[in-house]
Design a protein around this nucleic acid. Sequence first.
DNA 1: AATTTTTGCGCAAACCTTTGCGTGGATGAT
DNA 2: ATCATCCACGCAAAGGTTTGCGCAAAAATT
Lengths: 345, 345
Amino acid sequence: MTVTLKDIAAVAGVSHSTVSRALNGNPMIPPETAVRIRKIADELGYVPNTIASGLRRTHSKVLGVLVRRIDDAFLAEVLQGIEDVLYAEGYGLFLATSRRKPEREQAIFRSMSERRVDGVIVCSTEVSQEHLHQLSKFGVPTVLINNQAAIEMAHSVTHDDMSGGLALTRHLIELGHSRIAYLGHSRTGRITRDRLAGYKEALNQAGLPYRAEYVAAGPNGSAEGGAMGMEKLLKVDVRPTAVVCFNDMMAIGAMHALRQAGFGVPEDCSVTGFDNIPLSQYVNPPLTTFHQPRYELGTEAAEMMLRLLSRKHKNLNAAETIALRGRLVVRESSGPPPDGTRNGQ
Amino acid sequence: MTVTLKDIAAVAGVSHSTVSRALNGNPMIPPETAVRIRKIADELGYVPNTIASGLRRTHSKVLGVLVRRIDDAFLAEVLQGIEDVLYAEGYGLFLATSRRKPEREQAIFRSMSERRVDGVIVCSTEVSQEHLHQLSKFGVPTVLINNQAAIEMAHSVTHDDMSGGLALTRHLIELGHSRIAYLGHSRTGRITRDRLAGYKEALNQAGLPYRAEYVAAGPNGSAEGGAMGMEKLLKVDVRPTAVVCFNDMMAIGAMHALRQAGFGVPEDCSVTGFDNIPLSQYVNPPLTTFHQPRYELGTEAAEMMLRLLSRKHKNLNAAETIALRGRLVVRESSGPPPDGTRNGQ
DNA sequence: AATTTTTGCGCAAACCTTTGCGTGGATGAT
DNA sequence: ATCATCCACGCAAAGGTTTGCGCAAAAATT
């Protein structure tokens, strides 16, 4: 049924080795023979069997990508970045989502090992050190994107969360705010801490006090989580006049909760997000946020992986981290504090 | 380096065939032998080589998925639906994005053929009849999701666009609108036509005239496209009091353009979207839209593909289409028309 | 006890490609 | 004419698995 090298060889009157070499551009085969064979292959409708060639060669030209979930504006764009460079380099992309289930993650790593992917890119998931170790034991290189727990001896690309938290908070301070809250996300580790650290640092630099009651966390990173977190903050005695949210979706939820409670944004309370997801500019009011180089996170990770694969002498030990910088995006959800709160509380 | 069946066989003192059979649960091997072998395999850290087994077997247990792009709220959720059922069934997911480039699409189909995927799911892209034919020639079954051009003899799952357009328009009519515009998307084929058809049908049923000047198209399906389309509609002599947009992002753009021009939504002009993307409830005002069963589109397509693969006697000819129904979601972007336009213009 | 059946497993081929090594013929040098 | 060189290609092994067939030993039947 399907045509193989042997079939082409029979028609061309050569051995299948010659066909293989001709098709792979091996210089051993003179050009005229090569084009003749190529032509016959095309006429016969030959489609090389990557799976057979992968068996003989050592690599599969496929990269595994593990991501928490696909239907997330942030991750989707990172994925697109990865896919674009993999496509350009002729690599395939084997995708799986962990959905935060450790057993699913486990199964995925196994499946990727079995499929002999050349490497795996792990994106924004709480991946355990052991799993990664298990992979590296098989010589499967790994690149981490925004890993939650800082993992030793790993290749990773991250964005600079701390400077983002700092930039947003400083922006609010410059607008005159002093009662600034931080609305985090209880299920994320390093990232929420880093952003919180930036927030604290900004307060510190401005000589403003840090108040524990101004730090709340939503149960998750969605709009619902933001709304729930905001409701907590609204119960504080002296309400904050600005809130730095963990991400844009939470900020959107927070604004929703504020509106529900009868407060205007930014008149009564400024709100900032984080990530600059495409939507943040279309909500009303458009969101002040910190832009993440999402797409670039993907491309950088993919390129790092490709570099890793090209230097065959896998000195996987040499850890490497590249940190991408974001930028403050000021829109209309942040403004001066309400009158009377300008200086001090 | 890596441990193979042969290594296990050596330790267990049997042949590698026996190991293979034991590990695959072949009843020929008595249970006690099987568990003994299984144990040795585990101790040795054996990881089956799917690529070798795929060579011997005829199938790869991998499905190709071709999608226009990943960073699109709609497609991402469809993808998640696909991934979830594939994961549950032990299938892998090989992902590629066409990004509307025909040559890229071509290359992707080729790459998928070469990788011997068991089938491909094509999602919402303007895929040509020939490409699909090329795949089916190789016995690679195909399932289409929301294909733009209705393609003959194909398996596909779609949503019912016409009834969506009809439901939205009827909703506006019931609110009292008579000057209702349709804002389409010039780059999509069947879908925009179907929604338009539903719009016309609703007008027709209500005895309202269809006016060509009330039908505009944006250059693309994004918020920018919606804004640009809306600007055209605002130039019409007698402005519409409601506009049915092709999708939510365009609706968001349209609302933006209306605000820029000093009009209120819905006081001056109602706006409806299509898709009910997660964000549509968080924009201000929250968007009236037509919910698409995105996730289910994915799961249905994956399940259809799996059914296709299970009946080995590939009677691929038997076309099959399943249409999923959506539902109207009324929020605050639609309301009664401004005074004085209620009856007639 | 002799014969048949069953059980448990090994042999080897097959899947398709890549590649080290070898070979026969042509070409060039002496 | 003889020998070394080189060119173009073929042979066969290798990569890891699955599986039809066969075979010896054990069990069951007579």
